[in-house]
Design a protein around this nucleic acid. Structure first.
Lengths: 193, 193
DNA sequence: CAAGTATCTTGTCAATGAAAAGTTTGCTCC
DNA sequence: GGAGCAAACTTTTCATTGACAAGATACTTG
């Protein structure tokens, strides 16, 4: 009897997969109402556990968001690595925007250090991996004494994603537009090289 | 006796300029600790008034931030209008970044609609004026069926400002770099025209 | 100067984040 | 197989917060 129930997560005292569940619920809660209205207690209720359960796993609210940001950096690194390196800068830029629109909660939190334990070990490690994956395409196609072009490319896609997510730019077909937008930069830089 | 005290703001019951003071204190409080840690009560203490004083002027926390965002849009419009129209797109882009770095709290709040009463009348009016002031330079230099280039230019400067403010890009000399970064886009677009 | 209104205060309430202390479960080691 | 132990979760508590209601004070207008 007991052995049968052991793996029934709805009945057992131990949830078994709570950390993952809480991260997922956090992401969707933020996507719905924004980070400001995120409540640890509401989150706990949503996951069907008690008040203090999230605190156990993440220490505090900042810890929860730190974990979410870390997951975000991991996913971003993965997304950037998934693009064929020969695909060119534009494809990589589109992948960046694609990630931001697919994981808006992660993306938002990743760039608000004040919400996080910014010196957390796993966070900085994941962030560094993501930065590395990001700069691959830029560094190989045009190396130079300064990385101003890299900053420009990053600014462009990051700004576009941010503006779309904030509602300032209406995304008729965001990815198509992202491609065109990125094209302006790369095309110009190629000619001026 | 009473008539002497009438204009002493530290003593009089009525502050006289509280709304403005609260907005300023809000901006500096956010600049120090971020929006998340902004407390109405702490703000009131900071301004030397009671708990409910801010609520009286702004209704609620969102109202306070809405007023701050409105002020931000006004300042942005002013900043963009201040640039000589013949100065070119790059100067206008630099002005945008300059505004963002000079008023980080305003800038942050302006692009987080969830923190605001997004349908507020004054807010939308100021926002529309700012948008108009923003698009002047773009529309006049290159008009076309679509405004993709305008979106690209905006994305570039907005992204750069955001990345610098979030600490993702270290600003050695942010405005110099902004100029170079913007140059990549405009220069390229000019040649490809 | 009297009435009325704008501005600010005091007091209260439910919700929240965080921590302390207790309870249950699963694992390990003999 | 069971005793001990650590991990996972709960219950309780406390200070802080945003929001509201009701009261106090100052200004203003007729």
């Amino acid at each position: 009897m007991k052995s049968l129930l052991r793996y029934d997560r709805t009945v057992t005292y131990h949830h078994g997969d709570l950390r993952r569940t809480l991260l997922a619920e956090t992401a969707s809660a933020i996507a719905e109402d924004g980070v400001a209205k995120l409540s640890m207690r509401a989150l706990a209720k949503r996951a069907g556990v008690s008040n203090a359960a999230p605190t156990y796993h993440f220490g505090d609210k900042s810890g929860l968001l730190t974990a979410l940001a870390t997951e975000g950096y991991d996913r971003l690194a993965e997304a950037m690595s998934g693009v064929d390196e020969s695909g060119g800068l534009i494809d990589r830029g589109v992948a960046y925007v694609e990630f931001a629109l697919a994981c808006p909660s992660h993306f938002t939190v990743m760039f608000q250090p004040r919400l996080l334990h910014d010196d957390d070990g796993e966070l900085t490690a994941s962030r560094q991996r993501a930065w590395a994956a990001l700069s691959v395409g830029v560094a190989t196609t045009r190396s130079g004494p300064d990385s101003d072009f890299g900053v420009a490319a990053w600014s462009l896609v990051h700004g576009y994603a941010t503006l779309v997510l904030s509602g300032a730019v209406e995304p008729e077909d965001a990815l198509r537009q992202a491609r065109i937008v990125a094209g302006h930069l790369v095309e110009g830089a190629d000619r001026s090289r």
